[in-house]
Nucleic acid binder design. Sequence first.
DNA 1: CATGAATGAGCTTTCATTCAT
DNA 2: AATGAATGAAAGCTCATTCAT
Lengths: 204, 204, 204, 204
Amino acid sequence: MKDESKHQKILQAAIKVFSEKGFYNSRVSEIAKEANVADGTIYLYFKNKDDILISLFEEEFAKIVRDMRAELAREKDALQKIKRFAITHLSIVSHHPHLAEVMGVEVRQSTKFMKEYVNQPFIEYLNIIRSVVIEGQEKGLLRKDLTPGVMKRAFFGALDEMARYWVLSTKKKHSIDEAALQISDVFIRGMMSEEARKTYPWPS
Amino acid sequence: MKDESKHQKILQAAIKVFSEKGFYNSRVSEIAKEANVADGTIYLYFKNKDDILISLFEEEFAKIVRDMRAELAREKDALQKIKRFAITHLSIVSHHPHLAEVMGVEVRQSTKFMKEYVNQPFIEYLNIIRSVVIEGQEKGLLRKDLTPGVMKRAFFGALDEMARYWVLSTKKKHSIDEAALQISDVFIRGMMSEEARKTYPWPS
Amino acid sequence: MKDESKHQKILQAAIKVFSEKGFYNSRVSEIAKEANVADGTIYLYFKNKDDILISLFEEEFAKIVRDMRAELAREKDALQKIKRFAITHLSIVSHHPHLAEVMGVEVRQSTKFMKEYVNQPFIEYLNIIRSVVIEGQEKGLLRKDLTPGVMKRAFFGALDEMARYWVLSTKKKHSIDEAALQISDVFIRGMMSEEARKTYPWPS
Amino acid sequence: MKDESKHQKILQAAIKVFSEKGFYNSRVSEIAKEANVADGTIYLYFKNKDDILISLFEEEFAKIVRDMRAELAREKDALQKIKRFAITHLSIVSHHPHLAEVMGVEVRQSTKFMKEYVNQPFIEYLNIIRSVVIEGQEKGLLRKDLTPGVMKRAFFGALDEMARYWVLSTKKKHSIDEAALQISDVFIRGMMSEEARKTYPWPS
DNA sequence: CATGAATGAGCTTTCATTCAT
DNA sequence: AATGAATGAAAGCTCATTCAT
């Protein structure tokens, strides 16, 4: 029986190696070494090098989606959820910088080099934001003239660019939590409906 | 003197090829073919394959920075400049989709494979936004509690993620101009100071 | 005591797999699967992959040699034996096409990849023909100017090439029995001594 | 412009290496070394390792077919042509033992491992014999009860098995020319029609 | 005896770069 | 300056064989 823990060991090693060198500059042999297995062992658990990256997306992103949904479920309205999304996203990044680096950098690359591969978990992650925006619009908290599909990308892009900077920079000038608050605050104020602006007990 | 036009021809070919296949899946010979020169000729104008990408960033981003500065100079205040930045950025993207694709996708990758290479023009581009934010804060139009260094990344990230989607998607569901307006609108409202909200003749 | 039946099971599996893919394109794991044993089990019965092929030659050819000798013993003279050899050879082929395929194709290859290995059973098989030729010459039935060592190869080669065609072709245009008769007939007439031609009650 | 002589140089090197080790035990790097070119150069002239073998069949067999046809054209009847075929075939073998070895050994293997590849030149070579047999039958020199398609294989097989032995054996007991004469003599006598036997000025 | 996960040597092939022309 | 054939290092992947269970 194949060993589930070995699958994980290789995936974790891949995160480390990919985050350090990038996918294309990483050698399968380096991942094997990092995982303390033989080169050939990799191929007992993954079809090929691409499959390692794809599995990484699928499995790690799925976890993140699950966690994010659980976090947001505890918030009572869309505005709180937006704030929570920002905090949680950047918290994940700061706690799993290697993973964040791989995701942030390779998720784009992947769309190019694996033309056929659709990163479903990534799309789902984006759609969490979309759902929140729609919910907010229905409840009258968010402006109805904003397109959810545009907002999900704008918000994600804003957080992600910040995350990338934070992960790559060695100096960590800005506090990542403070950044999360500022970004969500700008989006919330910017997307808020006129009525909500009057009645909503703001700032939180 | 080296032939300036051939340098350009190769760079334009590289943009096309990189945008189609990504940097790592592009072959130097493909660029040569696209540029109608011999493989070896590439090496008369560029040190190596990496240097093509670096030159591409340097030169193309420099142009963009110049153009963007010129555009913003014609706007009278920070709020207008923010709007103009969004419109111009996405306009560049829609008019130069190949370039945008390379910039958007490879700019991240590049920071990994060229650790030492600091993408100065890219930083300058970001700092255009930073300057606008600072200007807005000084003029009392923008909230002073927002960190310009955070805002520049958030705003750029929002636009860039939108751009990437637009460039990669074949269906072009959302109008890119409409998206530019929505995103700048959200940022402007979100970053606006309380006084400006009362006095500024809004919406533009 | 090693399990004799498992040894056989592996050998039969090997015949099947080798005949389908050829020795070099066959995987030890495929043989194991075909034989319903674990990969490692193969190595309890055979030294290595080469040894499977060698054993196959040794054991299967030994059977064939035994059977052929028994068949020929029932014929009264060299001419009848030549005919019988052809019929029996091609009958074996048509009843054991997998085995024939392996023998026909790999027996040659084997001499190349196992420089040191002398395929003794194969030589013995050829020498059955040689004995028949010598016997015929001694009895005055066959021309004495023919070299038995040349004739054994010519006759075997003729039958074998026919067999290979028959095994590989899907259409089976020529009846294999008819071919056996034609080939032996040509050889008998061609090798017959002048006296025999006058006295021998021909055609058989 | 690609160099035609280099193509040839690689092919000749391949013949040598394949004949020594067999196709599967030959390394592309060994061929490169033997041809005094870099490993990569091989791939400028051949698609892959298989393609070297296929090219070798195509080009070398084509030459042989051409030469054999020219040789036979000079003979006046089918019986002479059969004799000439045997002499020429074994002469080619003795003058190009490496090539003969590759052809003899790999031509079989190839039909198995390159399922899709039909060795057209080999088929043509066989059909030279077939044409001769048909010609002989039409002229009344050869028995009409013999199937040309069976005879072509029998005759080729006889010669080929002899050739293989001669090529592989180090001792060269039998003279190859003598063997050619004996084999063609047996086939001619065996295939001759009754009338020809009476009227044909035999032995030649 | 039997297993099958793990090993790692060794293969083919690619492609950035060079350099003789 | 321009060429493009030649180079050869380097990488992904395979699979015969081993050995702990």
